[in-house]
């Protein structure tokens, strides 16, 4: 390719992503050191140059505030806890599904894969909303259980942490199934045959051969579920009620209800630091896939 042509093919997406993906984070970092004020924009400038005096105002008060008010620490911890157990739940349902799909013949395999993908092509918001109707006090589960006489009064399902787990596993299941499937389908059959020939029972072959070899798929799927779940807003907002504390919801409220942009920025920066390790993990897997 000609040098100029090649350069411009690199430059266009590069500059777009630099400007609209990387630079915004720098601005969030900057504003997390500002102070809230009632004006447009609703934060103070960090650098001022008035009457030949250069003033730099770095306000670490927002971060101090995050440490001081235990609400934030609790929200970060419970977000990580909820995302972690929801990821395990998705893995327990998703791995056997991916395994079964990978073992089907080619035609069935494509149809099954399409069936896994189809729900995620319909609206995320609407799929979460569907669970409101199922889980609420006069919803399908409670009405059903009461009509057959198992319970006398509705059990609280909606607005509980359980509902958030169900919502996350439900919404993110396809993201767990797909990378594990991609990994399992490439598995070399001769390894499994060798193991069987040497007298290894199927369950032992699975544990000692299949499972370790599908590690990359498990990691990719788990990261695709875990990382976005930590910052999830829609699911805890619609299914979790007032008692479920998650950091995505806290950030949303800081921004939209309290209109405190600097504190919202500090919340975002700490969340990003928290997710740096899993994101790097995911990136290492994904860049190997992309550059292979």
């Amino acid at each position: 390719m000609s040098k100029l042509g090649a350069r411009s093919v690199i430059a266009v997406p590069y500059i777009w992503l630099l400007l609209f993906f990387l630079v915004p984070f720098i601005i969030v970092f900057k504003i997390s050191f500002a102070e809230m004020q009632y004006s447009i924009p609703p934060y103070t400038e960090l650098v001022e140059f008035v009457d030949e005096v250069l003033t730099i105002n770095l306000n670490i008060g927002n971060y101090y505030y995050l440490i001081d008010d235990s609400l934030y620490a609790k929200a970060y911890l419970s977000s990580v806890r909820i995302a972690f157990f929801a990821t395990i739940g998705a893995l327990l349902i998703g791995y056997p599904m991916a395994y079964a799909i990978a073992r089907a013949d080619a035609n069935t395999r494509n149809a099954l894969l399409m069936m896994v993908m189809l729900p995620s092509w319909t609206s995320f918001l609407i799929r979460i909303y569907a669970w409101v109707g199922i889980l609420k006090n006069n919803g399908l589960i409670n009405n059903g259980l009461m009509s057959i006489g198992i319970i006398d009064e509705p059990i609280a399902l909606l607005n509980t942490e359980l509902a958030v787990y169900i919502g996350i596993v439900y919404a993110y299941l396809p993201f767990m199934v797909l990378p594990i499937y991609t990994n399992l389908v490439k598995l070399d059959n001769s390894l499994l045959e060798a193991s069987a020939d040497l007298g290894c029972p199927p369950w032992k072959t699975f544990l000692t051969v299949t499972l370790p070899l599908s590690k990359a798929g498990i990691i990719a799927g788990s990261m695709l579920v875990f990382i976005p779940s930590v910052g999830e807003f829609v699911i805890p907002e619609m299914l979790g009620g007032a008692e479920t504390l998650m950091i995505g919801k806290v950030l949303w409220q800081e921004f939209f209800n309290n209109r405190d942009w600097p504190v919202a920025s500090a919340v975002a920066i700490v969340m990003l630091l928290l997710l740096l390790v899993p994101i790097t993990f995911f990136h290492r897997y994904q860049s190997r896939e992309l550059e292979a």
Binding site: F21, P24, A268, P278, H283
Partner: peptide
Amino acid sequence: FTSMITAPLVMPEVITGLSLLLLFVA
């Protein structure tokens, strides 16, 4: 370049939304 392609796949939406808004305001 590859990081900027892979990171948006998992970035929590509240962070992406907030950061882009602050960019547009700035």
